[in-house]
């Protein structure tokens, strides 16, 4: 059976409706909310602060530390368990790698910058939503960055290449391939690329092309949100 029409009626290259807001947590140095469809990510940036244990300190630059957590009530399925897990450790690592590729922390040697990502509602694409929110929160906190990072997943559902899979598509009966990708829209470089499933070379190329297009749209939303914080106060 082929996948002819998407479950929520979107076009195959269409993103879910997005929403972004910056400066939502007053006590944090920078914070952001990013919503795509039913997935909502919050990110808060704290620091630079003292780093222990001491052997983790880097003499030349600061350390970026990310935490990722799906809240216990955030969605359905076996993934949502309270507390840290193997899966969340992996996502923390890839998120950190994606953000480190744009971030300049040479101004705060020995210190640590904490980025906390919380998913209050989930419907697939959480690591991408988390990266989007975290990159906005870091910009809001005034850190030096070469570019913003936008992230979205593309993939294969049935026999169709689609953009921005939701949970119903990710768990499609006939098999689905999920490719989360983080992208730097200005330089055109990829900051994260993961793949789960079987896919041909041509299909992968097409999926990456689609994800790049989606990331550019997301970046526009991120930019608007960052500017909005200062516009409304006029």
């Amino acid at each position: 059976m082929s996948y002819n029409k998407r479950n929520d009626g979107r076009a195959f290259d269409e993103l879910r409706p997005m929403d972004a807001k910056v400066g939502i947590i007053k006590n944090a140095l920078g914070s952001a909310m990013f919503r795509i469809g039913k997935t909502v990510a919050l990110a808060a940036v704290y620091g630079p602060s003292e780093l222990f244990p001491k052997f983790l300190q880097k003499k030349e630059e600061g350390l970026l530390r990310c935490t990722y957590n799906m809240m216990a009530f955030s969605g359905s399925g076996t993934r949502v368990k309270p507390g840290p897990s193997r899966r969340s450790r992996e996502i923390e690592l890839v998120t950190r790698n994606a953000l480190e590729s744009v971030l300049d922390l040479s101004e705060c040697p020995r210190a640590v910058i904490n980025v906390n990502i919380e998913l209050i509602q989930t419907d697939a694409g959480t690591r991408c939503a988390g990266i989007c929110a975290a990159s906005m929160a870091l910009a809001d906190a005034g850190f030096k960055m070469k570019d913003l990072v936008a992230a979205v997943s593309a993939g294969l559902v049935g026999d169709k290449i689609v953009l921005d899979l939701d949970y119903s598509e990710e768990s499609f009966e006939e098999g689905a391939v999920d490719i989360p990708m983080a992208f730097m829209p200005r330089t055109g470089k990829i900051a994260l690329l993961q793949l789960d499933g079987e896919i041909t070379k041509e299909q992968l190329r097409e999926a990456i092309k689609l994800a790049k297009k989606g990331c550019k749209q997301i970046c526009e939303v991120q930019r608007q949100a960052l500017k909005e914080k200062y516009k409304t106060e006029e």
Binding site: A139, K144, M145, K146, R186
Partner: peptide
């Protein structure tokens, strides 16, 4: 916002908060 291109061409110089990438001057801070 970070990553936005502020100026093009070699007539300008990047100062704190911006950097040069090719012939463009790009903001690196909000």
């Amino acid at each position: 916002v970070p990553g936005e291109e502020v100026a093009e061409g070699m007539d300008f110089l990047p100062a704190p908060g911006t950097f040069r990438d090719g012939d463009k001057i790009v903001a690196c801070q909000l």
